[in-house]
């Protein structure tokens, strides 16, 4: 699904990702943990193609395609989805308009027939129900005036409708109450399939009780300093990151 080899990436000429390698196979869930400022969001931004986040060396293969060679919209149409840590508000553009445009773009790129307005509406309503957002959210401006938790649920709703093959969740659990956390986890688990992979960035072991990862990686200082199975998350919860940083140093 995704093979990152020796990736170095910088923002404003500052190197943030250093020689990072990661392999994600179809169907797998990888959790990425690590201290603030380690480069987790930067990795997500590089993967999704945000302007200003420049890969200076290394390669990224996504489903046999050279990811770094693709514009952000093509990456998305090919099935890469990033649920943002801080989703942006877009007043004046309704959630529904954005969703329809997004899903139409993805479907036409993959040769699927376009959904009628009515069918799409039905799907969107179901998705909003699945993430426990009232239908009125479909008509509102994208994220406009949404609470923190509502924004995160809105990201998951978009993810459900776009049916990506690789989902990157950047701290989707931050700021969620217990119920919302369950909602998000249920959404992710419902989408699990042998040909869909997840990269879940989180600070909290708690999320991984609900979304059980195959691998847990620790990202510090722009590189993966330790990988393990889900028990690593428990160990981090107990010990923090400093022992790892010591270990690496």
């Amino acid at each position: 699904m995704l093979t990152i080899k020796d990736l170095c990436a910088s923002v404003e000429d500052k190197e943030i990702i250093r020689q990072l390698s990661l392999e994600v196979k179809p169907g797998e869930i990888h959790a990425i943990m690590g201290p603030n400022g380690a480069g987790k969001s930067t990795l997500g931004n590089v993967l999704s193609g945000r302007p200003g986040y420049e890969a200076t060396s290394g390669t990224i293969d996504f489903k046999g395609l050279d990811l770094l060679d693709m514009d952000p919209e093509i990456r998305a149409r090919e099935g890469l989805f990033l649920a943002f840590q801080y989703p942006v508000e877009i007043p004046g553009v309704s959630n529904m308009e954005l969703l329809k445009a997004a899903v139409d773009a993805r479907r036409s790129h993959t040769g699927q027939p376009e959904l009628s307005a009515i069918d799409f509406m039905k799907m969107a309503r179901e998705a909003s129900k699945a993430v426990d957002l009232d239908q009125s959210f479909l008509k509102r401006g994208v994220n406009e005036g949404f609470s923190g938790g509502e924004k995160k649920r809105n990201e998951i709703m978009q993810m459900m409708l776009m049916e990506p093959s690789l989902c990157i969740l950047d701290e989707t659990d931050s700021g969620l109450d217990i119920d919302a956390l369950q909602v998000v986890a249920r959404g992710v688990n419902a989408m699990r399939s042998p040909d869909r992979s997840f990269i879940v960035v989180t600070h909290y072991q708690r999320l991984l009780d609900f979304i059980v990862p195959d691998y847990v990686h620790v990202l510090a200082n722009g590189r993966i300093v330790k990988s393990g199975d889900k028990s690593l998350a428990l160990e981090l919860e107990a010990k923090g990151y400093s022992w790892l940083e010591d270990e690496v140093a």
């Binding site: 999704s48 193609g49 945000r50 302007p51 514009d71 952000p72 919209e73 990456r75 998305a76 149409r77 990033l82 943002f84 989703p87 942006v88 877009i90 007043p91 004046g92 553009v93 308009e97 954005l98 445009a101 997004a102 773009a105 993805r106 790129h109 401006g141 994208v142 978009q158 776009m162």
Partner: peptide, 28 residues
Amino acid sequence: NDEALFYMTSRGISEAEARVMLSFGFVN
């Protein structure tokens, strides 16, 4: 807004269409 433009392209929407949607959104 560059952030909004990127958000929309990251959802598969072409930059050209995103610009039109954002312009319309401004007066919507």
